[in-house]
């Protein structure tokens, strides 16, 4: 049996001519899109309170009072949903030595010379950055968010602490939106990526180009059983 080091048990080469590889099962995809919807609701409602010029966004949720009420609950929903993602993806998102080489040669990634870079497993350093950026920022937003959830935790922290919590919450929110923009941009710029989260599969060429160690391992794992 081939050791499974760079792939999930559910990852699989599902077709040989042309090669097609399953990257995410339906559960992961639903989990992802639910998290994404929560994120967008949180981003829009949060922006409404972040800058007066964006206060009009509260109209999307039925006014200021409803937005104020809704935002923290969606935050809890996102946290739970993200935790689901986290436990599915974390072990392949540990930073490895080849990630540092990849990062040092990021220019080759942008100019399309991935042949000069080390072969990668299921995730590259950019994807891992999004993963860990989301993780740490969601953690910060959750903790500070509960501190400022006035309706249910009015006396959890002192006023001085809550001031700092609100400040950290705003800064973390801006940072996580930047990570979100990076995430969407990278998914669109790297053609052929989006279908991993819609259909659940990617092409062999995509896998060979970006995650060759992952593809190689999947093929080795399927050595004993024909993939068709």
């Amino acid at each position: 049996m081939v050791e499974r080091k760079f792939s999930e048990p559910t990852d699989e080469i599902v077709q040989l001519e042309p090669v097609e590889v399953r990257r995410y099962i339906a559960f992961t995809r639903w989990n992802h899109w639910f998290t994404a919807i929560c994120f967008i609701v949180l981003m829009l409602s949060g922006f409404a309170f972040f800058h007066p010029s964006l206060y009009g966004l509260t109209a999307l949720f039925g006014g200021g009072q409803t937005t104020r009420w809704l935002h923290p609950f969606v935050g809890i929903a996102l946290t739970v949903s993200f935790l689901g993602m986290f436990f599915q993806l974390v072990h392949l998102n540990i930073i490895r030595r080849e990630d540092l080489v990849w990062t040092a040669n990021i220019k080759d990634v942008i100019t399309g010379h991935e042949e000069r870079l080390p072969e990668l497993g299921k995730y590259n350093f950019g994807q891992k950055t999004v993963f860990w950026g989301m993780f740490w920022l969601i953690l910060a937003l959750l903790i500070t968010g509960i501190m400022m959830w006035y309706q249910y935790f009015p006396h959890l922290v002192s006023i001085e602490t809550r001031r700092i919590a609100i400040f950290v919450h705003s800064v973390s929110a801006v940072l996580i939106v930047l990570v979100f923009i990076l995430h969407i941009f990278a998914a669109l710029w790297t053609r052929g990526t989006l279908r991993a989260m819609t259909r659940g599969t990617v092409t062999g060429g995509w896998s060979w180009r970006h995650h060759r160690k992952w593809l190689r391992e999947l093929a080795r794992r399927q050595r004993t059983k024909p993939a068709e």
């Binding site: 040989l16 042309p18 053609r191 060429g205 995509w206 190689r216 093929a219 399927q222 050595r223 993939a227």
Partner: peptide
């Protein structure tokens, strides 16, 4: 960053070899 026909061919080759 687009996947080329060569990439697809390489993938087929790699998968066949490994299998």
């Amino acid at each position: 960053n687009s996947v080329s026909q060569e990439d697809e061919a390489e993938a087929r080759e790699l998968v066949q070899e490994e299998l």
